[in-house]
């Protein structure tokens, strides 16, 4: 059996909010549901769109750079819609049976164990496939019948077809920033989804998010956001990617813990963004200018 997906979500606030953190023992994937409202600051009509899509059985594709709040948004929506949330972080070795299920040998007998996708289909959860392009191409085909109006899951090995629970909702995410010809979604996959584009929020909103997540004083949050924007301007000019909101939250938490702002930025931002000593020095100069 796959371990319950307790991926360490960086955006999760320090206070233990998830049921996993509150109960000491693990729970089944399909039992995970956010009990308290995960903080999410809407920047547009994405909440209404998600609700409409979920009601209309339309699968969703979330795209946007890393650390801008895609995962948090899904957690928030799971809470809002009172549905369990099954998250699968895709990696390049993820196979169809990792999603659907497999036979296991238990005490001399062969037992079928459902994978996270099958469980989500059965109980009517939101199934969130994070960074779907990382998964093997053949894997994505498994979700095709679920993502159109058939809404069922075929399990070849057991010879069964599972019709999806009415509450089942498929959400996938990908980051178009990693532009590589090999990491593109197939058109046939893409066209089954409605797409929501995410980006880093407007400065004021981002500062509010950082303030909420860290408890840092607003002036410092503004500075952090300004620094982040400066690094984002250097994308493709020495940096692969600018500082994400998640990085800012990390940095803010270090500051709240009493670390000097310049040192915190160096640790959480400059050295994280690049290994090139020249760029580390450049980012350090920006830090010195902003703080």
């Amino acid at each position: 059996m796959l371990p319950p997906n307790n991926r360490d979500d960086a955006c999760r606030p320090p206070a233990p909010r998830s049921p996993l953190a509150m109960t000491a023992h693990p729970i089944a994937v399909e039992e995970y549901r956010p009990e308290q409202e995960p903080y999410y600051h809407p920047v547009g009509d994405e909440v209404a769109l998600f609700e409409a899509a979920a009601a209309g059985h339309i699968p969703l594709l979330l795209k946007g750079p890393t650390g801008c709040g895609k995962t948090r948004f899904v957690e928030h929506m799971a809470w809002r819609l009172h549905r369990p949330l099954v998250t699968v972080s895709c990696h390049d070795d993820l196979t169809a049976s990792d999603l659907v299920g497999r036979y296991l040998v238990k005490g001399g007998e062969v037992v079928w164990v459902d994978g996270p996708l099958t469980r989500a289909v059965k109980v009517g959860a939101i199934c969130y496939l994070d960074e779907i392009v990382e998964a093997r191409k053949d894997t994505t085909v498994v979700i095709h019948p679920l993502a159109d109006d058939r809404r069922y899951l075929t399990v070849e090995k057991t010879g069964q077809v599972h019709p999806a629970h009415p509450d089942f909702c498929l959400v996938i995410s990908y980051n178009p920033g990693y532009q590589s010809a090999l990491k593109e979604l197939k058109v046939s996959t893409r066209q089954r989804f409605a797409s929501l584009a995410f980006d880093y929020p407007a400065p004021a909103v981002e500062a509010a998010v950082v303030a909420h997540e860290t408890g840092l004083d607003p002036a410092r949050c503004d500075q952090l956001v300004r620094l982040a924007q400066m690094t984002r301007n250097l994308k493709e000019q020495g940096l692969e990617e600018g500082a994400s909101t998640r990085l800012l939250v990390h940095c803010g938490r270090l500051m709240v813990a009493g670390i000097d702002p310049v040192r915190a930025c160096e640790t959480a931002i400059a050295l994280t963004l690049t290994d090139d000593p020249e760029m580390v020095a450049a980012v350090a100069e920006m830090v010195a200018a902003v703080f």
Partner: peptide, 8 residues
């Protein structure tokens, strides 16, 4: 130059 490029 890098610094100013970062400013936007």
């Amino acid at each position: 130059e890098t610094f100013l490029a970062a400013l936007g």
